[in-house]
Write a protein that binds this DNA or RNA. Structure first.
Length: 641
RNA sequence: GCCCACGUAACUCAGUGGUAGAGUACCUCCUUGGUAAGGAGGAAGCCAUCGGUUCAAGUCCGAUCGUGGGCUCCA
């Protein structure tokens, strides 16, 4: 007999024949209850819905386990079951911290003398499966904060006690399942039998409350899904993401290498990567010329005194490399380009009529990053910023910021990024400059954002020491966010370096300085680009646009001839005249993600043509090399791409 | 920097204390083949580095360097 079973979180359960109006039943059941509860709805024992939240107005919202909320509940409950399993296995040797659901899964932080190792996953998973099979109910209870503190203290759960003692509510909710009681807001599934599909993924260290001065805990990450198929899809997605990891593709496509001998976080650009970078740089320079910028070049080191004047030594010293002595004077590697641009400014007297002055530079800087922070191209120790500094009058500030935002979005769009997160970062704890200046510049950034009609979030206290900033973050394939663009107002350096201009009134005034980078750093930006395109770059930045290949040795000479012709016309072409089968050559070109393969056999040689095979496998009708040139030039302009 | 894992040929990886392995790439030869891997042979490794345990260490232990996943920090 088919039936619907509805179980409430407090353990009560009722069955009804199929066809019963589920929402009505649940509503009726819940109407006699005091609090919001999660209820499970099963058809023939199969889990169908997580229903929850009898709202204030008495309406019922069913929650599917496939919905975002449903998944979150599943995962959160799985985290609790994992904690229970761990407690049952290791008892008082383990203290629990926190265990939330996160994007794609959950984690739980534990404090244990010997950190967990993945070798223990099997044991824990087995225990979890056991608990799931026992259909252990989740019971929600409310108690006073003091009672809860007493309870957790008794069990030695000091982390929970710390959390509780900082809460300002009098009543808290706890969930119990078996021997494990956890401080938790809920909601949870009614019982553990809901949690069929889960997997522990990895262990990681994490500081208690995210504070590196506090206890290092062991975090176990896992995930849970409504069914096996969903889990499988998730694992497949991870695998796909791994395939487009820029470190893997960087190796495969011959773009860059990082070698122990040279040092961590220092990039060696291989010929193809160097070409890709040059194409990006050329485009960047060209666009800056069009947008009224002038290009600068500055050195990599400067006297230490310069960094004292700029305040970098005080505020950024931990990230700078040690000084070197040259002719009894101390010098240091630059972590930023700004002081040099200011030096160029101060080389001349300036008038308000020149403003805004827009100076840009692809400036290579060196910053000490802790080893654990390094990550492929994304986080390195030596990198090239696409830096610029704009000097203007206060009345030009807002408009200039607006212009930069506009330019910024144009550049990102050309590179194929239409989605990003925008943040406005405000005054940090460690800062220079007056509060008045900070407020003024924060306001200008805000207004420009609003005028540009950009959605943004406020990142409180995340500004640089010398000013507030707008950051634009791009997401990589694994969903990690990388800050690329940054626009920063600075009232500080102009003051420190006594920058001046002559105003309309003939008096001396101080210019406002804006720092900005659009791509952030070439290294990181290219890293994001590699993952974004999975290495298959658009024609305008593909290091190798075409590869010509002969079928037999007979066409070797013809191949060479066409190759030379196309190269002279500026096509980025390579030739493959090895004694290999065509299949083999195509396969290799395909793996290298080359947009066009030009095939020449006997037929083409006789007709003076080439056969063009596109990356997607499509063949174009035979054409002359000249016709191909026209085709490529039309397609390889970034401004129309 | 902190926690865990890892480091073997150019690359991807086997190798659970007893003579160092595979596939790919590379070199030579055969093959001249029309849209994603033709065949045969060859060369290639101080098993990251340093120290220890052992009759014996790629394998066990420690340190250092590096990498990966996180935490913290950040373009």
């Amino acid at each position: 007999m088919t039936e619907i079973a509805v179980s409430l979180q407090d353990g009560e359960s009722k069955a009804f024949p199929q066809g019963s109006p589920v929402a009505e039943i649940v509503k009726e059941l819940l109407s006699s209850k005091q609090r919001k509860q999660t209820v499970a709805v099963r058809y023939n024992g199969e889990l169908l819905d997580l229903s929850s939240s009898l709202g204030e107005d008495g309406t019922l919202e069913p929650i599917s386990v496939y919905s975002e909320t449903g998944q979150e509940i599943l995962r959160h409950s799985t985290a609790h079951i994992m904690a229970l399993a761990v407690k049952e296995l290791y008892g008082d040797a383990v203290k629990v911290a926190i265990g939330p659901a996160i994007e794609d899964g959950f984690y739980y932080d534990f404090d244990r003398e010997k950190p967990f190792s993945p070798d223990e996953f099997e044991q824990i998973e087995q225990k979890m499966a056991e608990i799931v099979n026992n259909r252990l109910p989740f019971h929600r209870r409310e108690m006073s904060r003091d009672e809860a503190i007493a309870r957790f203290e008794q069990h030695g759960e000091t982390y929970k006690v710390e959390l509780l003692s900082e809460m300002d509510t009098n009543t808290v909710s706890v969930y119990s399942h078996g021997s494990f009681v956890d401080l938790c807001r809920g909601p949870h599934v009614p019982d553990s039998s809901w949690l069929k599909v889960f997997k522990l993924l990895r262990v990681a260290g994490s500081y208690w409350r995210g504070d590196e001065k506090r206890q290092m805990l062991t975090r176990i990450y896992g995930t849970a899904f409504a069914d096996k198929k969903e889990l499988q899809q998730y694992l497949t997605r991870l695998e796909e993401a791994r395939k487009r990891d820029h470190r893997r593709l960087g190796r495969q496509l011959g773009l860059f290498t990082i070698q122990d001998e040279v040092g961590p976080g220092l990039i060696l650009w291989q010929p193809r990567g160097a070409l890709l970078r040059r194409l990006i740089e050329d485009f960047w320079k060209d666009e800056h010329y069009r947008h009224g910028y002038q290009l600068l070049y500055t050195p990599h080191i400067a006297r230490q005194d310069l960094w004292k004047t700029s305040g970098h030594l005080d505020f950024y010293g931990d990230n700078m490399y040690s000084a070197m002595e040259i002719d009894e004077v101390m010098y240091q590697l630059k972590p930023m380009n700004c002081p040099f641009h200011i030096g160029i400014y101060n080389a001349d007297k300036h008038s308000y009529r020149e403003f805004p002055i827009r100076w840009c530079e692809l400036g290579t800087v060196y910053r000490y990053e802790r080893t654990g922070a390094l990550h492929g191209l994304m986080r390195v120790r030596g990198f090239t910023q696409d830096d610029a500094h704009i000097f203007c009058r206060p009345d030009q500030l807002e408009e200039e910021i607006f212009n930069i935002l506009d330019f910024n979005l144009h550049i990102l769009k050309t590179f194929g990024f239409a989605e990003y997160d925008v943040f406005l970062s405000t005054r940090p704890k460690k800062y220079v400059g007056s509060d008045e200046h900070w407020d003024l510049s924060t306001q200008a950034l805000k207004q420009a954002l609003e005028k540009k009609q950009l959605q943004y979030q406020i990142d409180p206290g995340e500004g640089v020491f010398y000013g507030p900033k707008i950051d634009i973050k791009i997401k990589d394939q694994l969903g990690r966010s990388w800050q690329c663009s940054t626009i920063q107002v600075d009232f500080n350096l102009p003051e420190r370096f006594r920058m001046r201009y002559t105003g309309e009134d003939g008096g001396e005034h101080q210019p406002i300085m804006i720092h900005r980078a659009l791509m952030g750093s070439l290294e990181r930006f290219i890293g994001v680009l590699i993952e974004h395109y999975a290495g298959a770059f658009p024609l305008w930045m593909a290091p190798e646009q075409a590869r010509i290949m002969n079928i037999t040795d007979d066409q070797g000479e013809y191949c060479q001839q066409v190759y030379t012709q196309l190269r002279q016309r500026g096509i980025r072409i390579e030739q493959d005249v090895r004694n290999e089968k065509l299949n083999y050559k195509i396969r290799e070109a395909q793996i290298m993600k080359i947009p066009y393969m030009l095939i020449v056999g006997q037929r083409e040689k006789e007709e003076g043509t080439i056969t063009v095979r596109k990356k997607d496998g499509q063949n174009l009708p035979p054409m002359t090399p000249d016709a191909f040139c026209d085709l490529v030039s039309a397609e390889s302009n970034p401004r129309v791409a």
